[in-house]
Design a protein around this nucleic acid. Structure first.
Lengths: 121, 121, 121, 121
DNA sequence: GTGGTCTAGACCACG
DNA sequence: GTGGTCTAGACCACG
């Protein structure tokens, strides 16, 4: 299920990218699966079709999906790109925070707190 | 030392905010210390004075610095705001990643790798 | 209706903030309502768009409105921030007056006089 | 005792005005009493002499003190101006808040809370 | 069309 | 000299 948060700074097209990646990561979409048609998804979410099309274009550029003219968009083989996409931002941010003198343990503590909030292990 | 990346999505004023916070966090600027004059910093970085003024205004609203008319801007007492500001983005991102099914241990692993790269403990 | 007093110490952008809060407080703008476009309001009031943009930026940072790129600014859910914003200055001033030895009853008397002038209960 | 808060928006000269008024209001300075010499007060508080001179000039203009060349500044006869000065801002603010739809009782409630905090009656 | 950011430059209050 | 405010106007991302 994809939900969009119009508040907050993250652009909608980026939220769509992240949602699709999350679905793949969670196994909801597997390699070769067809993902929702851009226009259908736009209608369902009440978004401008251009916004969804932009998201799909980025995902294709990133090697996460591939499009077949007249048939739709499909999940590409390698899951590595998905994981990379999801952790790249995290990795960069961690680097910047460590550079700011924040202790690694402090960051791990925040992870534990967040994980506990979600009942995650 | 403050360096600005004109490319990339992070606004220049936000980069200035983060840089000042980093300096405070690292102890380069202590409580009550005067930070560089907005106009001087703008000149040094080749930026418009308004851009630096915007950053300083945000830091003041966030309780990290306070300004004294005719004298300059100074680091406020409580360092909590600095830590909060620096970790807020991290906390949000961790939440989103956990929601995507990424394991907390995977994130901690990335932190360890980054910390090791930097020779950090 | 928003009216601006160009004279007086209160900055124009702060007057805009207060006016928007007043409209929300009075129920003219409800949760989720769109407030006037920054550029349109600037034109209507004969102000520079930047001045209105500054006000809107502050209101967003204060959690009173949120902006959606390409669509406009909207009233956020929680009205608490509006009340807090409106009474913070009052609370501070009362503190200072009590410190000056003015009796609480004297202040309440002034409130009653003002309320009666306005036919308020 | 006069204390100056360099943080916060209130200009220092205005804080001096308010402090002198508070002393008069509290009875520390009575009618005809000499108030501290501007230069001495500036030295004591670590302020620019011009700042104190400005405050004294405003108080004289407001009829709260009068200066005698070569002798100093003295508290004027009528205490009404002191009370007026202190409550004028309050009265204005109350007017604006009532106009914003805030209930008089809400304001009285804040006064009670502040009075209780100070152990005031 | 909408808000977000930035440059350029002016004037002012404060001290 | 310092920050605060404001005007004028440009370009961009988003949708």
């Amino acid at each position: 299920m994809i939900t969009i948060d119009v508040m907050g700074r993250t652009p909608i097209y980026e939220q769509i990218c992240q949602s699709i990646c999350r679905e793949i990561s969670l196994g909801a979409y597997k390699e070769g699966d067809r993902i929702p048609a851009a226009r259908a998804l736009a209608k369902e979410l009440g978004l401008n079709p251009n916004t969804v099309a932009k998201a799909y274009g980025i995902l294709e550029r990133d090697g996460i999906i591939y499009s077949v003219a007249g048939r739709g968009c499909f999940v590409a083989k390698h899951k590595d790109e998905v994981a990379d996409r999801q952790t790249a931002e995290f990795s960069d941010l961690v680097g910047r925070l460590l550079e700011s003198g924040i202790k690694p343990d402090k960051l791990k503590e925040i992870i534990d707190i967040k994980a506990e909030e979600r009942g995650n292990t």
